[in-house]
Simulated assay, not measured.
Amino acid sequence: MLDRPTPEAAEPLKMLRTLCMALPAATERISHGEAAWFVRKSPQFAMFADHHHDDRIGFVAAAPAGAQQDWLARDPKRFYDPPYVGGRGWIGVYLDVEQDWEEVADIVEDAYRTVAPKTLVTQLDAERQPE
């Protein structure tokens, strides 16, 4: 786990961690100096960004085809095209602005679904079914 996030990043990191770790076979480890989440040991589906490349707090996440453009068109003050992984369609989400955490949860789940094997996606779907 990340030892010392900045004080303003501690709560968003905790909330993001809760969303990511609720997914089947999700793991967390440090990648590029930040908390990052993977399906088992690999592939990565999200990474926290505590002033990593700028003066902002946020995270980046894998995204299905076309989703990055959709989120950017909705609100460029809350979403961004992240350096390095934006060219692969990942979406950046600012966490130092007011966010809709239901939308953040959707982005995290979509990121997971984008990289997870079908067996884990099937498991997630089964867990999401009302009883």
Rank of each mutant, 00 (worst) to 15 (best):
M1H: 14
M1V: 10
M1F: 10
R4P: 01
R4D: 09
R4V: 07
R4G: 08
T6M: 02
P7F: 11
P7S: 15
P7A: 11
P7Y: 13
A9M: 04
E11T: 14
K14H: 15
K14R: 15
M15H: 06
M15W: 04
L16T: 04
R17P: 11
L19D: 02
C20T: 07
M21C: 07
M21F: 12
A22N: 11
L23H: 13
A26F: 02
A26W: 07
A26M: 12
E28L: 05
E28R: 06
E28M: 06
I30D: 10
S31N: 05
S31C: 05
H32A: 06
R40I: 03
P43K: 00
P43E: 02
F45I: 11
A49W: 09
A49E: 12
A49H: 08
D50E: 04
D50K: 09
H52W: 09
H53W: 10
D54N: 14
G58A: 02
G58N: 07
F59A: 09
V60Q: 08
A61I: 13
A61V: 15
A63T: 06
G66H: 07
G66K: 09
Q69Y: 02
Q69I: 03
A73V: 13
A73R: 13
R74G: 09
R74Q: 09
D75P: 06
R78F: 03
F79Q: 11
Y80T: 12
Y80K: 11
P83Q: 10
P83A: 08
P83G: 09
Y84R: 11
Y84A: 08
Y84S: 13
V85K: 06
V85N: 08
V85C: 06
G86E: 08
G89K: 01
G89N: 00
W90M: 04
W90D: 03
I91G: 01
I91R: 01
G92D: 07
V93T: 03
L95D: 04
L95T: 02
D96L: 05
D96I: 04
Q99M: 10
D100R: 01
W101Q: 04
E103C: 00
V104D: 00
A105W: 01
V108T: 02
E109T: 05
E109C: 10
A111G: 14
Y112I: 05
Y112G: 09
Y112F: 09
R113P: 04
R113F: 08
R113N: 03
A116C: 08
K118L: 03
T122H: 12
T122D: 14
Q123D: 08
D125T: 12
A126T: 15
A126I: 15
E127P: 15
R128T: 14
R128D: 15
Q129E: 13
P130S: 10
E131A: 15
